[in-house]
Design a protein around this nucleic acid. Structure first.
Lengths: 107, 107
DNA sequence: TACATATTTCAAGAATCATTGAAATGAAAG
DNA sequence: CTTTCATTTCAATGATTCTTGAAATATGTA
């Protein structure tokens, strides 16, 4: 991943509402959650939630699928993994101190 | 780390100039680099570089120390480590797919 | 078709962030 | 103490992002 792309992804994560969305979708697991339920859970209006859900799924952190009247959003761990890899390998060249912080603890 | 704090740190990383600074300081190693050399290396004016260096060191990604007429900046891996931990553990609850992406490869 | 539910889109305004170049500050040398 | 070098600060401007509420779209039901 190039730095410019990583910068955009970090920008998407630089918002507490959006981190709350990610957290909520991680907790609910693979079934995912509707836009409305997400909005209620993070305490945001429908349009505000939609704005942030759009940013997250455009960036590839979420997938969405229509289910009847609702949109069902699910977490996709891939982009987060790519970002962590960027930080560790590209940005910090595999620095040992950094590898220790996230390796196999409680595995 | 709480989500609001992580959001601020992601905001600091959401800029290509600042990622270039981090990269340059990782490459130069523990000796660090002066503000002027950093500015030249990333292709930014002194005031622009100073603006970004300030954001990075305020956030804790860098340390600085005056050396004669120059300011010497060094990378501090700690905050990046905390951020990765936030992503892995707090945000994503230690998801296995995510742990694999950054554990012990090429260690 | 009419109506209700779920979500997105849009425009306006507020807030935040980045860039520029000039001026100010700090530190060393003549 | 003046000059030079290195960096930061500042004000102005431009650009981007966020929020709000209303309107529009999409889907399902009577």
């Amino acid at each position: 991943m190039i730095a410019e792309e990583a910068a955009v992804l970090f920008g998407v994560l630089s918002n507490a509402d959006r981190l709350s969305v990610i957290r909520a979708l991680v907790e609910v697991g693979p079934d995912g959650m509707s836009a409305g339920d997400i909005a209620r859970q993070i305490g945001a209006s429908p349009s505000r939630a939609s704005f942030h859900l759009n940013a997250l799924s455009e960036a590839g952190f979420l997938t969405k699928e229509r289910q009847s009247r609702s949109q069902n959003y699910r977490i996709d761990f891939n982009k987060i993994g790519q970002l962590i890899t960027f930080l560790m390998d590209d940005c910090c060249k595999g620095n040992a101190e950094l590898r220790n912080c996230c390796s196999m603890r409680a595995g």
